[in-house]
Simulated scan of single mutants.
Amino acid sequence: MNEAQHTNPLHGITLKAMVEHLVERYGWEGLGERIAIRCFTHDPSVNSSLKFLRKTPWARAKVESLYLHSAAHPRKSSAAPPADPPQPG
């Protein structure tokens, strides 16, 4: 197997999976704020975004970079509510 594939953190992750992950995490509005391209800010959809990103290397690079950042810094789970501070008494 190619050594570059072993060190590529995006190996095996499709562009569609990246876009869907980012939309789930940030929403279209938040994604458009982070990467200001029309496919995220004007009538966004996964399919139209994929079409643009596959033709536009600089935009795809921004999506890949944001995906790597978000994967490296997962949001903390909000499953458990924060504990109440102890009451003086």
Rank of each mutant, 00 (worst) to 15 (best):
M18D: 08
N47Q: 10
H6I: 03
S45Q: 03
C39G: 01
L53V: 06
H21K: 11
N2D: 12
T14K: 04
R54G: 05
W58I: 08
I37Y: 02
R38N: 06
G89A: 11
R25L: 14
A17F: 07
R38E: 07
T41L: 00
R25S: 07
G12H: 15
K16C: 09
D84F: 10
S78N: 13
A4G: 03
K51A: 07
E64C: 14
N8F: 02
L66G: 12
L10S: 12
G32N: 00
D84K: 13
E20Y: 02
A83F: 05
V23W: 08
Y67R: 11
F52G: 00
F52T: 09
T56Y: 04
D84N: 11
L50W: 04
D43W: 02
R25Y: 01
I37Q: 02
A80E: 15
K76M: 08
P88A: 15
P85V: 07
S78F: 11
V23I: 08
S49D: 02
L53D: 12
L15W: 03
Y67T: 13
W28R: 04
P74Y: 03
T56S: 11
H69S: 12
C39Y: 02
G27C: 13
L22E: 03
G89T: 14
M18I: 03
A17W: 07
R54H: 05
E3K: 09
R25E: 05
Y26R: 10
S65W: 06
G32H: 01
E20Q: 07
A79D: 13
E64V: 07
A72Q: 09
S65M: 13
A59R: 04
K62A: 12
L53N: 09
H73W: 06
H73Q: 08
K76S: 14
L68D: 14
K55H: 11
A59L: 01
E64W: 04
A71Q: 14
L53E: 10
A17N: 10
R34K: 15
H6S: 11
A83H: 07
C39F: 00
H21C: 05
S48L: 10
S65N: 15
T41W: 00
S70W: 05
S65A: 15
E24W: 08
Y26P: 00
L50F: 05
E3V: 01
L22K: 07
